[in-house]
Design a protein around this nucleic acid. Structure first.
Lengths: 342, 342
DNA sequence: TGACCATGCAGAAACGTGCCTGCCAACTGG
DNA sequence: CCAGTTGGCAGGCACGTTTCTGCATGGTCA
């Protein structure tokens, strides 16, 4: 390449990177030759020399044997998409990595930093990365003393309390919970918020737990919850598929929604706008979270100072639909759903 | 590191890579010191030296301004998940890249090869990669003379013909199609298969098109299709959300499913098992496609010879549910859905 | 006219591997 | 006892950048 342009290696580098003291003529000439030859500088060499790879990792905690939970929960898909977009917009690319510390893969890729979704307490991957001096930003407030660079999360407690108040205001006397057996922060915070609320209003807790990664178990647990002698007249489901599961279970028991049973679930799926009846959902705004996480990470990589705290709380949104309104509005032709933009 | 272990750099390299002529004692010693120091060989240097990065790209064609379509279609999410798993299982990591040839990102990452989902004819990214000598495997039979290394696809034509026969056997007299305005291979093949089928059985085609990336437009198009004077008594929707869209539209027009309207859509979403009524779906088996694509790509990277053709056709699966059966089975308590495993 | 500076470029040292080559010691066979 | 072989390691080059330094040349100013 340098030979083809009749200049030195230094000049090529300077011309392409806009550095050095070169007249425009030389710069143009070099770029033109590079274009003609289809020359692409070696990313590996650049990375070796500069120490920056332009790659950031994305790690999703794994339930079960499958490495990812992308599919079951629209949350992860949306969050990952937003993160990818945000990274690309700033010239970075995203690498998807397993949460398990498989040396052979992790050490094969030179990362500038990593996004970790829902890290467990004492997460070995995180501690290893931090030891290497790499910035780590987590989606989900880190448990314990996990030394992340920054984190982004919702206020799960407030969201659940607000949601339960909403159900109570709609007439619910006994609200049930469909929750998970896993110990991740989301499940834990949401469940304790529920228990607190029950204590505050003097209701006996009514809940069923199941392993969230098993879609079959979700349907069974929904059934169990509605089969109880102390059957709730409203249910909040913590996970994405709970809405359809609960709706199906309600139909099996002849319960009308919302007349006999109020329903809310936490989901990012748009299908709940067109179910019969449409189901109220709690959105955690994964796109905003994915974007925020990546921004914080790249800021840390590039040494941008944050005077504020490196914690960011994203507000949730309760999308109220028919399933949580005791008096459903007069049935009218519902407008086609419109795309939500954040 | 070499100094800490009291050996030469060569010995360290040989010890960690299992090469050279070293007694087990030395090998163990070096590995132990490396472990103690938390030493990780530089991925950038290794890549520079060997020419292999252990990274493969994943590119999704973009509709509209958002770089990815992950969310709308469970297909992409499942396919990406399977591809990621398959790559990791063979020691590779996946990098998500934009389909647009943004130099700054593409040239920042050293790839060993790339998976391209649904490349357009004359795709500039593909031709550029091939020019660089990198293997490219596409999900979707490449249009025109696109020089991909290998490809994997379904037999869309056969799938559609089979599906239409199924609807006709269930009593459909006039089958409508909800299709897209885009020119990707999937849409094109499916639509022409529909037109062929219509011609064969002597039915006038009844279809509505809309830009598939716009979820709002899908609902409107579904409405349009059922509002036509030549209203079909069965509809096949090419895209994931069409099922719920059509169901909602049918309710608005007072049409019972499946008594007045048979419904099938192409989707990987599990929600169609619990809608009212459950909707028959055509599954393209994205997990098998994602796995196959990555296997072929890594085989090409590692120089594994294929005596057979480097084309692979994955069978589709028609998951028959109530919505496409004119005589619905006696209503019974439907079993909770079980996870499908491929 | 000589000192000084700006301009335009080239040389060369790293970055951290992998691998080829080579050297020394010890062992082996005749 | 000596040539040949084998085991055990170290030296050193190359991968393709970035960047620091340095060397000319020509212009400016006192």
């Amino acid at each position: 390449m340098a030979a083809a342009a009749g200049v030195s290696i230094t000049t090529v580098s300077d011309a392409l990177n806009g550095k050095g003291r070169l007249p425009d003529a030389t710069r143009r000439h070099v770029r033109e030759v590079a274009e003609r030859l289809g020359y692409r500088p070696s990313a590996a060499a650049r990375t070796l020399r500069t120490g920056k790879s332009g790659l950031i990792g994305l790690t999703v905690t794994t339930y079960g044997d499958e490495p990812f939970t992308f599919t079951e929960f629209a949350y992860f898909a949306e969050m990952a998409r937003a993160a990818t977009s945000a990274a690309l917009a700033r010239g970075y690319a995203l690498v998807i990595l397993p949460a398990t510390s498989r040396h052979d893969v992790w050490s094969n890729v030179a990362l500038d930093g990593t996004v970790v979704i829902d890290p467990s307490d004492q997460d070995p991957v995180v501690t290893e990365l931090v030891r290497q001096g790499l910035p780590v930003v987590s989606d989900g407030r880190p448990a314990g003393t996990l030394p992340v660079t920054a984190w982004v999360d919702n206020d799960h407690r407030a969201a659940v309390l607000d949601l339960l108040d909403h159900l109570a205001a709609a007439g619910a006397r006994r609200i049930g919970l469909l929750t998970g057996t896993t110990t991740d922060t989301y499940t834990r915070l949401s469940t304790t918020a529920y228990l607190h609320w029950c204590e505050r209003v003097g209701q006996d807790p009514v809940y069923e737990s199941y392993p969230a990664h098993d879609p079959c178990a979700g349907a069974v647990a929904a059934d169990r919850l509605l089969a109880r002698p102390d059957r709730p007249d409203a249910v909040y489901g913590l996970f994405d598929p709970n809405g359809t599961d609960l709706l199906a279970a309600a139909r099996r028991y002849g319960l009308r929604v919302p007349e006999d049973l109020l329903l809310v679930c936490c989901s990012e799926s748009t299908v709940y706008g067109t179910t019969e009846p449409p189901i109220t959902t709690l959105s955690l705004k994964p796109r905003r979270i994915g974007t925020a996480v990546v921004q914080l990470l790249i800021d840390a990589i590039e040494g941008v100072e944050h005077d504020g705290p490196v914690e960011q709380v994203i507000p949730t949104e309760l999308i109220v639909r028919t399933s949580s309104q005791r008096r459903p509005p007069r049935t009218t032709v519902s407008a086609p759903r419109s795309p939500s933009r954040d």
